[in-house]
């Protein structure tokens, strides 16, 4: 609990700190069948930072993302997004923050079956008050980046698994959201398409967003600035890229 914590936005604002998890724990269920999915996680994501999360199945990676994205409140600890303490926000404020600031790529894509690819991608903008017409342009741009410009009018059921995944990614980045939370965004993709998605995530982050990338693939995690390892709901290790590579002579010109 936060008790008499600072209300939203009155702490000295560190504008580069996009996300802060402070002693976050998450327990599903009660009593005998209770499962502790997160146990006291501290994590920060700053502007320009991509953090990868790795860990065995069931270690709490998806839970970490849903809690960080304000989709479920933690059972203990505090989540702070762009200086807002999520526990202090009303449901409506939380919805607005999620729509404007957070892009979420779900492990199971979560596309709306009755909407076309383009409509799925436009949806967060339209919910935010954009006209459909105005929203379609950035939505189409986002689809083009993931090389699905020619599938804009398809419904999810008519797309392959990897294509659906890319629509979900386009939806997460459309409109320049500042914090991208991606759960296995490359899981259904071949290695070239996977690289395309990582390159896009990386460029969004380099342009000033922040991101968390959950992945089982070490090569994909290596695109991040930091890699944290979860085990049984705890961060047990972390790898930070050093600024300068000492491994190679460098690029032949």
């Amino acid at each position: 609990m936060t008790g008499a914590a600072l209300p939203t936005g009155t702490s000295p604002v560190d504008t580069d700190l996009l996300l802060k998890l402070d002693g976050v724990s998450m327990q599903y269920g009660r009593g005998e069948t209770a499962v502790t999915a997160l146990a006291g996680v501290d994590l920060q994501v700053r502007r320009g930072e991509l953090v990868a999360v790795m860990g065995a199945s069931g270690s709490g990676k998806s839970t970490l993302l849903t809690v960080a994205g304000g989709l479920t409140p933690p059972t203990a600890g505090e989540v702070i997004v762009e200086g807002h303490w999520l526990s202090q926000l009303s449901a409506r404020e939380l919805a607005v923050l999620r729509r404007r600031s957070l892009g979420f790529v779900f492990q199971d894509f979560n596309l709306i079956p009755s909407l076309t690819a383009l409509e799925n991608v436009s949806l967060p903008l339209e919910l935010d008050g954009w006209s459909a017409k105005k929203a379609h342009r950035p939505a189409l741009d986002a689809l083009r980046i993931v090389e699905l410009g020619d599938r804009a009018q398809h419904f999810p059921a008519d797309l392959s698994g990897g294509q659906q995944q890319r629509v979900a990614i386009a939806r997460a980045v459309v409109g320049g959201r500042s914090l991208i939370l991606a759960d296995e965004p490359t899981g259904a993709l071949d290695s070239t398409t996977g690289e395309l998605v990582l390159r896009m995530l990386r460029s969004r982050v380099d342009a000033g967003a922040g991101g968390i990338l959950v992945t089982h693939d070490a090569r994909h995690a290596a695109w991040a600035d930091r890699i944290v390892f979860l085990r049984d709901g705890r961060i047990v290790d972390e790898s930070r890229a050093s600024a300068v590579s000492s491994l190679l002579g460098g690029l032949p010109l």
Binding site: R202, R219, A221, A222, S239, A241, S245, L248
Partner: peptide, 19 residues
């Protein structure tokens, strides 16, 4: 664990160099 951290750091550096 110590080894894995080092291996991942190597992987990150190589990826960064490549990118």
């Amino acid at each position: 664990q110590v080894q894995r951290t080092a291996t991942f750091r190597t992987l990150q550096e190589l990826t960064r160099t490549k990118n």
